[in-house]
Structure formats: C-alpha cells, structure tokens
Design a protein around this nucleic acid. Structure first.
Length: 817
RNA sequence: GUCGGCGUGGCGGAAUGGCAGACGCGCCAGCCUUAGGAGCUGGUGCCCGAAAGGGCGUGGAGGUUCAAAUCCUCUCGCCGACACCA
C-alpha cells in the first residue's frame, strides 16, 4: 500500500462564511473621513434592484472589489460604497401585476436579496454608507437639488409634444410607442399632445460638457466620441431671407455652409414652422394644410427614417436670397425639423445630399457653386459636399470654399442680413414623468402666485402611502400656497429617475447628513471618483447628466471639481448560451448557485479570468473547473508543499532559486500594474505562472528556505484581492499574525528595476549590433556603437513600467543560447 | 449612410515595434487509482518528416523599419453607436 501524505483539502464552503463574518465585524471596508492616508474613491454604478442579480452583474462588482482590496493593501483610504437606483417603472409594473403589492415593498425586498448575494460573493462595501434613492432620506435631497436648479434658472416649465395613451391616460416613452400604437394596447393609436412639462436647461452647459471631454483622458475613447456626437455642436450662420409680400418680414434659416448661399434654389420650412400659415398662398392652402396635418400625426420614428422618399409641398410663397436678390420658392417638408436650428433651411441641392434628393423628386433647379479641385463641371449625379472653389457666386468667385464661409458670413453681417451661429443637437432634458414611483417635483401651483417652489425646510414632499396615480389622490395634491397661504394644487408629476442617479455619488460622502444633500467639505475630500465602473449603456444619459449636475454644483460653490469621474471603465457583459444572462431568459447563474457549487473565490477568479474585462464573455462551467484546480494547487503549494514535491520530478534546473526570485519579482510588477489597469485576466494568468514556477521549483528539488517562504507569502498577498477568503485562511494557517486585510501590498524594488532596465538595453542593442555587423558589414565595435546610438534602442526604454521591462528582459535573456 | 471598435490555434485569449500563440479550456499519451467527469507527468499552431530538421503562419494586398499581430495606405468581414441635425 502506498503511504501518501494526507492532504487537507480546500473546501471553500467551510471557510468563506467565516471570513465574511470576520470582515463585517471588523469593518474592514469602512472609509474614514479623517484618515491621514491618501483617499481612493472606487465606485461601481449603483444598480436598479430588479431582483435579477446574476453572476453577470456580479462580475462588475468583483472588479470594483478587487481594486478596492488592492488599493487598501497599498495604503489608500478606500471609499467603496454601494446603493440602489430604486425608483422606476419595473416596480410599478410588478405592483400592477400583483394586485396588492406596493412598489416599495417589491423594491426593498429585492434590495435585501441583492445585498445578501453580494456579501456571499465576498464583495466588501462600506454598507454604513448605503444609499437608496426611493427613501425619503434620499429623495428629500433630490427635491432640494431640483429647487437649486430652479433657483439658478436651470429648471423651467414649457409646452412639449408628448406621446399620450388615451386608455392609460399617461405619457409614454418613445420606446413604448410601436408603429404609432400603445405597447400595451396594440389597437389604440397614440396621440400627440402638447403638455406643460418640466425641463432642465442642460443646453446652457453644452459648450462646457463638450469642451471638458478633453480633460477626461482616462475615459474610453468610444464614450467621449458618443458624447461629442450627442452634444453635436455645429458652427455656421443664421441668414435672414425676406418673404415676398409680407411687408419686409423675414424667415431666418440656419446653415453650416454660407459659402453655398448662391446655390440656394429653394427654401424649406418644417411643417410646424410658425410662418407656414402666413406664407402659404390661397391656391396652395388646402394641400399645405393636409400635409402639415399628416406630418403631425406621424411618429418620430417614421418621420426620421432615412429610408423613405422625401416628401413636401410648395407654399406658393417666395423668399428673396439676400446675396443676389433672387426669388426662390418656399416649400414645406418634413425632412426639416422644427427642433433643430431655426426650423427653416435654404436648400442647396448641388451641395447637400438631402436637398439634392428633394430637388430631384420635385424637379427643382440645381445650381453648382462649388467646383471640385481639378474636376470638370458638368451634370451633377449627386450632391458634391467636398472642398473646392466658389463658382457662380458673384464677387466671391474663385475663393476657396472654406474661406468663403467666413467671407460670406462677414458680408451678411455687415449688411444686417445674417450672423455667425452655433447650434447643438443636444436638447433640454425633459424630467417630468406621470408616474407614482419617483421623487415628486416639489412645486405647487397657486392661482395667485403661480408656480411656487416648496420651501426647502418643508421637504421632503412625501409620496402618499397608498399606491395610486398621484392625480387621483386629493390628499396629496391639495396644498396651501407657501407664499400666500391660499389653496393651491401640488405638482403630481414625479422626476425622471436619472435625476436620482445624477448625484448619488456625492451622497456617499456624507450619507447620514440630515441638514444638506452632501457635506461640501467631505464631498471635496472624496471627489472626484478615482475609478468608475459600469455598463456602456450609460455612455450618454447617466454620464452626461452626472457631469451636468457636477458642473451646476461647482458653479453654485458647493463642489471644487467640475468633472465627477476621473477614470471610467465599461465592462463587458456575461453571456450564456449566446445571450446576456438574465433570470427571465432562464440562462442566469445566481451568485447563490455559484457559491454553493464552487465557492466565491473560484467564482471571483473565474469572472476575472474569463476574458478581457471590457469584452462580452461566454460563461462556461468547464472554464470554472480550471480555476478551481488552480486554487487547489495554490492551497497545496502554500500549506503542503511536501505533497507537491513528491508528485514528480520537475524539469532540469527547476530548482534554480534565481529563477524563482525573478519570477516572484516579475509577478509583483505584473499583477500590480495589470490590476491597476483593470486587466484582471492577465493578472490571473501571471499568478498562475507564478504557481507553475513554484511547482517546478519544488519538483526540481528546491529547498523550502527563506526564498521559498518569500515566494509563498508574495503569492498569497497578490492573490488576496481576487480570492480573499482562501488567502485569509492560508495566511492564518501560515501562522501570520494579523489579518491579511492589514498586510501591505508587495513592493516593487525600484533599484532592481533600474538594473533590469540596463540589461534590456544590452539585450536590444546586442540584437541590433548582430544584425548590423552581418547585414551592413560593420565591425563589431562600430555596430555596437551604432546600435547604442540608435533612436529605436533609446526609445525602447522610455516610459515603460517596471513589470514590462522585466517581462521583455525575461524574454530576451532566453534568446541567448 | 456617418462615426467608433475589432479580425491571432479546436475554443477563451497572451504578446513596451524585438522568440507569435503566455495563461486557461479542450484534446492525445502515460502514471496512479476498485472506480472516476478526481489527482499527477508529458505532449498539443499548420504542413512535410520515423526523427533530426525544414517550410508556412496573426482576414487580404501593398508600404515604413535592422525588426510589424502591433505603425501607414487600400480592401474584405464582423460588432457597436448615431442616423434627414441643414
């Protein structure tokens, strides 16, 4: 019988709950406001508590947790908070589905469940700072921020066309309108209604929101591009065209190409343009009215489709082109939008694709005024939008089109017929929602005083206990005017939930403050967020709104920063069977199942190892087994190295202590750097390599001396952020005093790094020298001199982190036979 | 259509312009086991070859460089965002 050493097997379920309890008791992740240590604010986007938490969502939180734990070990005072974006439609839908369920109890139930699952995964937050946006403690301050906006002239009420379902008696979101019909009543057509709604004037901040994107150099390029396009700043000119027969009255158009003004052969107004009625002649009245009516009925989606053929009608009216006095016909067409520019354009079919298409359809003249460089003029088959010289353009002929833009604009300005103008695609933010489950907008309407804000000291405006549409709850909307004390009606709309999420990251700084939304001193201490992690689906809305709020609060003197998130990361999604994991699709794996099957640590490492963090990944149980094997091996390496040593003879030279030492140093550098850059998949690979090297060392007959000991301790520390439970357990069994959470992160030796840099120079230069002497016939000495002088060699050494230098050096050393 | 991103083994993926395929999965062979979907050892880009060895290789075509998966130009294919914004 073989006498095997008895192995103590690592059973995650035996140790994980124990350590989770210890961390909670010791308050390991409590952030101290008065700590002398440098701060690190590690934030994950707070989720909607849908009750559907899968390992897919957990991946995001594990990333944040790994970073938080590493930063803590590195000596930072880490703020790693969590909260819930708890207002919103799904809660109301769930409540409606199940008669007597209140949105609040549904929401709070999901929160309790989610909290448990996060803790089960070993994810540590400072739960004392938990924020829940649907609780009065929080939405009181959401309301206060609305008042601040109002006070600063950034909140206003205006008419807006909205989608209205006559059966549900509520406004619908654009996504809830399908083919012009209500999503819940496929036979009911949605009406367009003009309703008074509340808006926030985000357009006031368009320039700063755009310009400051340049400061966000640690944001994904993609997100910055998306925001740039969304804001959509364009520069051009507004030009006034006199309307024939209207007594000198003018129509103002906007164009980005004033250089093509001589090519304007007609004008187009949006159907909603206020002058349509007056410009239209008697003869055309009926047809224009019909067309405008039809356009009004169309949904945005239909109207904005580029697929369809352009349509329009002539008004019978004419405008006078200010540059040449030419009479051009005025048309109405729905490809011109009232919501952009001035709602009117000059049509230059020769140099604008849309105008070209329209002119072709209705046989309107096309006049070329920009000649392509070197190209001959002739029949245009499509609009030419490139550069060129101005032709057929009066005194401007021969000018370069780019220069023409300025010259023509100046010419117009001098005569009071136009001026430079900047336009944005960005619209003001409509924040009114005809919903129960949101923060009530804190204003009342008084017959005497008009719109009156609820005084800050009377906040919060509480939601009624009973779940019913707010306009149906008289005890809610009956109010007294704070100004005159007379009878008034309370606003029954609630706020868009994106308002809640535009400032939650500030509440974490002082979550229990009963006197203000946040303590400016504490907010200034913790802000900006050093690392913000969340889904790319928020690339525009949430991130733009949060930036807007931050700038407003900065202007109000309440915040020092004007950008909230220093570094942004968008993680990929976890899929299973080709689809994004979700409980409703039945392909979700819950943290609970995962922990029961393979343990939290294996799950955490797998989530990090499964693929690049920014990529979508496919969950597989086979892959999970691989990391379980890895953890088992680490366990034996650390606690029972003798059992590994007996397992076989490793490669020759496997016991080289210098190799082991170098591997340890290299791994410290790689894991530090790659965790910092959130490249967790390669950090795990580096740890696996270290374990492999340690195994080779043991099996090659290496002695378990001080070097071995150092390797073991380094491995445990480096692995700790990813697999904290097993590392705590091993640390304790190694007889170390003190919790691993208090242990320091292994330092990278700067002197060693410098030395290695030198080795790298020699290696790279040596390679180059060899080539030069063979291929250019230089003597060895000359070749070496040339090689060392080479820019490439010098450049090769600049700006690289220690781990990369070691890595390259490692690879190059092996080149030498 | 416009903008952005990505194309590397059977698979997920590694590679400061410097050995392409780290690490893992899977697979093959062997060991150990009463047994194994456990553990251990070795192998595993493709082609030729018994082996030694040789040839080919990062979607395709050019280019820059002593050196290209990486930089440049064109092209093909996927993915994402925006989409009549004048």
């Amino acid at each position: 019988m073989v006498n095997r050493p008895r192995r103590s097997v690592y059973v995650p379920q035996d140790i994980e709950p124990k350590w989770q309890k210890v961390w909670a008791e010791r308050g390991v992740m409590k952030a101290r406001d008065d700590s002398p240590k440098p701060k690190y604010y590690d934030l994950v986007m707070y989720p909607y508590p849908s009750g559907d938490l899968t390992v897919g969502h957990a991946r995001n939180y594990v990333m944040g947790d790994v970073l938080a734990r590493m930063k803590r070990m590195q000596g930072f005072e880490v703020l790693h908070p969590f909260g819930w974006d708890a207002f919103g439609l799904p809660a109301e839908n769930a409540a409606m589905k199940r008669g007597n369920l209140h949105p609040e109890s549904w929401t709070l139930g999901n929160i309790a469940k989610g909290t448990r699952e996060l803790k089960m995964m070993g994810i540590l937050y400072d739960w004392d700072r938990e924020v829940t946006s649907c609780l009065p403690d929080y939405y009181r301050w959401t309301q206060w921020l609305f008042l601040l906006m109002l006070e600063r002239g950034l909140a206003y009420r205006a008419m807006a066309p909205v989608n209205w379902c006559p059966v549900d008696k509520t406004v619908l979101a654009n996504e809830q309108v399908i083919n012009g019909r209500c999503w819940r009543h496929p036979d009911v057509e949605v009406e367009k209604r003009d309703l008074e709604q509340w808006f926030l004037k985000i357009t006031d901040y368009a320039d700063r929101l755009l310009d400051d994107l340049a400061l966000l150099d640690r944001w994904p390029h993609k997100v910055r591009v998306m925001q740039t396009n969304w804001i959509g700043r364009s520069k051009g000119a507004e030009v006034d065209f006199e309307v024939e027969g209207l007594g000198g009255e003018t129509v103002r158009i906007y164009t980005t190409r004033p250089d093509t003004l001589f090519g304007a052969t007609f004008m187009v107004l949006a159907p909603e343009h206020p002058l349509v009625e007056r410009i239209t002649t008697e003869k055309h009245r009926e047809r224009v009215r019909e067309y405008v009516e039809k356009a009004r009925k169309e949904t945005e989606i239909e109207r904005l489709s580029t697929e369809r053929v352009k349509s329009g009608v002539a008004t019978g009216g004419f405008a006078i082109n200010p540059v040449n006095g030419e009479r051009i016909p005025i048309w109405v067409a729905d490809y011109v939008l009232m919501t952009y520019g001035t709602g009117a354009i000059m049509a230059v079919p020769a140099h604008d694709e849309r105008d070209f298409e329209f002119a072709t359809t209705y046989h309107l003249p096309i006049r070329e005024v920009i000649a392509p460089p070197g190209g001959e003029q002739g029949e245009l088959r499509e609009a030419y939008t490139g550069p060129g010289l101005m032709v057929n353009s009066g005194d401007f002929v021969g000018l370069d089109a780019a220069a023409g833009i300025e010259k023509v604009t100046a010419w117009l300005e001098a005569r009071g017929k136009g001026k430079p103008a900047v336009k944005y695609r960005l619209r003001d933010w409509l924040i009114s929602r005809q919903r129960y489950w949101g923060a009530p907008i804190p204003v009342v309407y008084c017959p005497v005083d008009g719109i009156v804000p609820v005084p800050a000291e009377q906040l919060p405006v509480l939601l009624p206990k009973e779940y019913r549409p707010l306009p149906d709850v008289p005890e809610f909307w009956r109010a007294t005017c704070p100004r005159c004390g007379g009878e008034a009606r309370r606003e029954t709309d609630t706020m868009d939930t994106f308002i809640d999420s535009s400032w939650y990251f500030l509440r974490y700084a002082s979550p229990h403050d009963q006197t203000q939304a946040f303590d400016p001193e504490l907010a200034n201490h913790w802000m900006p967020v050093d690392q913000y992690t969340g889904g790319v689906e928020h690339a525009i809305l949430h991130l733009l709104y949060s930036r807007f709020f931050t700038k407003v609060l900065h202007d109000a003197g309440l915040l020092n920063v004007s950008e909230p998130f220093k570094r942004l990361f968008n993680q990929g999604m976890v899929k299973r069977f080709g689809q994004v994991m979700s409980k409703s699709l039945g392909n979700g794996v819950s943290p609970e199942e995962l922990v029961a099957a393979q343990g939290a640590d294996a799950g955490r490492i797998y989530e990090m190892f499964i693929g690049p963090p920014e990529e979508d990944v496919e969950w597989s149980d086979a892959g999970l087994n691989g990391v379980v094997r890895f953890l088992q091996r680490v366990w034996r390496l650390v606690l029972e190295p003798e059992s590994i040593a007996e397992d076989g003879s490793g490669p020759d030279g496997g016991a080289d202590v210098a190799v082991l030492r170098r591997k340890v140093a290299q791994t410290v550098g790689r894991v530090t750097e790659q965790n910092e850059e959130l490249r967790f998949n390669t950090a795990v690979a580096a740890l696996m390599e270290l374990a492999n090297s340690m195994q080779d060392y043991l099996q090659g007959g290496g002695s378990r001396d001080a070097d071995w000991d150092a390797a073991v301790r380094t491995l445990v520390k480096l692995l700790n952020p990813m697999a904290p439970h097993i590392c705590e357990e091993m640390w304790e069994r190694l007889g170390e005093s003190g919790m691993l959470a208090d242990a320091s992160w292994p330092e990278f030796d700067a002197a060693a790094a410098a030395e290695l840099k030198l080795v790298l120079v020699v290696q790279v230069a040596g390679k180059l020298r060899d080539r030069l002497s063979v291929e250019a016939g230089l003597s060895e000495a000359d070749a070496l001199t040339a090689a060392l002088a080479s820019e490439k060699v010098r450049a090769a050494l600049n700006g690289h982190g220690p781990s990369k230098v070691i890595y390259v050096q490692d690879r190059l050393i092996n080149l030498v036979p």
